[in-house]
Simulated assay, not measured.
Amino acid sequence: MISHCVFINYRADTTDGMKDDIYNALQALKPRVPGLTGIVIAPNSSPEGLDKGFSEGFIVTFRTAAARDQYLADEEHAKVGAKIVSAAEGGIDGLLVYDLEY
């Protein structure tokens, strides 16, 4: 299993509608990629205060690394990724992305 974790530090002017657009586009990727088993989208709820501005995020789970790689290469994923980068504070600097393999 692979959990592809993405945390976003949104620009202050990013509206809820813009975020909804991003999250709806992410959900639409699920049927495009065999082996994509789930998408969880949520705001940060940690009481520790260590979020460093990363207020929201999502985790996409895959059965295999090959399924994750197919997702990363998908043209619709590239479009959603561009929307995310555009909405993040500082562009790519406003993102934290890492994968957990287990």
Results as ranks from 00 to 15, higher is better:
45 S>Y: 15
41 I>G: 02
24 N>G: 12
35 G>W: 01
22 I>N: 05
30 K>W: 01
22 I>M: 08
21 D>G: 15
33 V>F: 04
27 Q>Y: 13
48 E>Q: 04
34 P>G: 02
26 L>D: 01
18 M>T: 11
28 A>F: 01
42 A>R: 08
26 L>M: 11
21 D>L: 14
31 P>T: 01
26 L>W: 12
23 Y>H: 14
39 I>F: 02
44 N>W: 06
39 I>M: 07
22 I>D: 00
21 D>T: 15
22 I>P: 04
17 G>I: 00
28 A>H: 09
17 G>Y: 13
44 N>Y: 10
30 K>L: 10
25 A>Q: 07
37 T>N: 13
42 A>E: 11
32 R>S: 01
39 I>N: 06
27 Q>E: 10
19 K>N: 01
30 K>H: 10
45 S>T: 15
17 G>W: 10
42 A>F: 11
19 K>M: 09
36 L>W: 15
45 S>L: 15
48 E>L: 10
21 D>F: 14
38 G>H: 03
23 Y>R: 13
40 V>E: 14
38 G>P: 04
35 G>V: 04
31 P>C: 08
39 I>D: 00
31 P>K: 05
40 V>N: 13
36 L>K: 03
50 L>K: 11
45 S>F: 15
26 L>G: 04
30 K>I: 12
47 P>G: 06
38 G>W: 01
25 A>D: 05
50 L>S: 09
19 K>Y: 09
27 Q>K: 11
44 N>S: 10
29 L>K: 06
22 I>W: 02
31 P>I: 05
39 I>P: 08
45 S>I: 15
24 N>W: 14
28 A>D: 12
33 V>A: 01
27 Q>I: 08
20 D>L: 14
37 T>R: 15
29 L>G: 06
28 A>W: 07
41 I>A: 09
50 L>E: 11
50 L>V: 12
43 P>T: 06
29 L>Y: 12
31 P>M: 00
49 G>R: 07
40 V>P: 08
34 P>L: 05
22 I>H: 03
40 V>K: 14
47 P>W: 13
26 L>E: 07
50 L>D: 11
22 I>Y: 00
43 P>A: 07
17 G>E: 15
19 K>A: 06
42 A>D: 11
